Amino acid sequence: MKWFGLPVLGLVVGVWATLRFSLLAPAPPVNPNDLCDIFREHTVWYDYAKESQERWGTPIATHMAFVYYESSFRSHARPPRTLLWGFIPWSRPTTAYGYAQALDPAWGEYLAANGDGIFTVRTDMEYALDFVGWYNHLTNRQLGIPFYNPRQLYLAYHEGRGGYARKTFARKPEVTALASRVQARAFRYDNQLKSCEQEFQCWRWYQFWPFCSASPSPQ
């Protein structure tokens, strides 16, 4: 009878994974224009963005501006399907998927470089933000784009580092305009975060002095 438990275990794991990564995916924030409100609604997202910043160098606000324009904070976002003969849903134009709209090849490189875990998925904000940080880290190292230049970082993210080096964006005014909007939002998010960041530090029950040094929020 020992073998009988294996299918049951597989079913349980499958149901758990479905709930974890699909049905229970967080809803997009109610107010995506204010980073303080975003983190108040999804506090763990601050932790993920902070961890990626500390690991790879991209500022928290830039992480979140990328996700805003890539997926509007929708965990399972994909490009809309093309239409065959104008009305039959057909293939998608790219393999972009998840919060960061990571393409299959880039995501495969990320997994190969950082561990191909079964639960490392593009629909989880933790890994989406880590992907953005990892990608920008390589961009900084290979192209010399500083982390405080969201516009150029986003151009390299959107066009790929090879495309950026070839300046493919120069022929795409819609892409350069989008990169400017990403930068404006990143700077706005950064200013907002300065007014509220300490709300999200030392907020867990096990974080206390001397292991956590954030001062209490002003009343």
Rank of each mutant, 00 (worst) to 15 (best):
G10I: 14
L11D: 11
L11G: 14
L11Q: 11
W16E: 02
W16K: 07
A17Q: 13
A17I: 13
T18G: 14
R20E: 11
R20Y: 09
F21G: 02
F21D: 02
S22E: 13
L23W: 12
P26Y: 01
A27D: 13
P29T: 03
P29K: 00
N33M: 11
N33L: 12
N33Q: 13
D34K: 07
L35R: 10
L35T: 07
I38P: 09
I38Q: 00
I38H: 02
R40E: 08
R40K: 09
T43Q: 08
T43V: 14
V44L: 08
V44M: 09
W45A: 01
Y46M: 01
Y46P: 07
Y46G: 01
Y48D: 10
A49C: 15
A49S: 14
E51Y: 14
E51L: 15
S52P: 12
S52M: 04
S52T: 14
Q53T: 15
R55S: 11
W56E: 07
G57P: 13
T58Q: 03
T58W: 01
T58K: 00
P59Y: 01
P59E: 00
I60R: 03
A61F: 02
T62V: 15
T62K: 03
M64G: 00
M64I: 08
V67W: 04
Y68N: 01
E70K: 02
E70N: 00
F73Q: 01
R74W: 00
S75H: 11
S75I: 06
A77G: 02
P79Q: 04
P79D: 11
P79K: 05
P80A: 11
P80T: 14
L84R: 13
L84M: 14
I88L: 09
I88M: 07
W90Q: 05
S91R: 15
S91A: 12
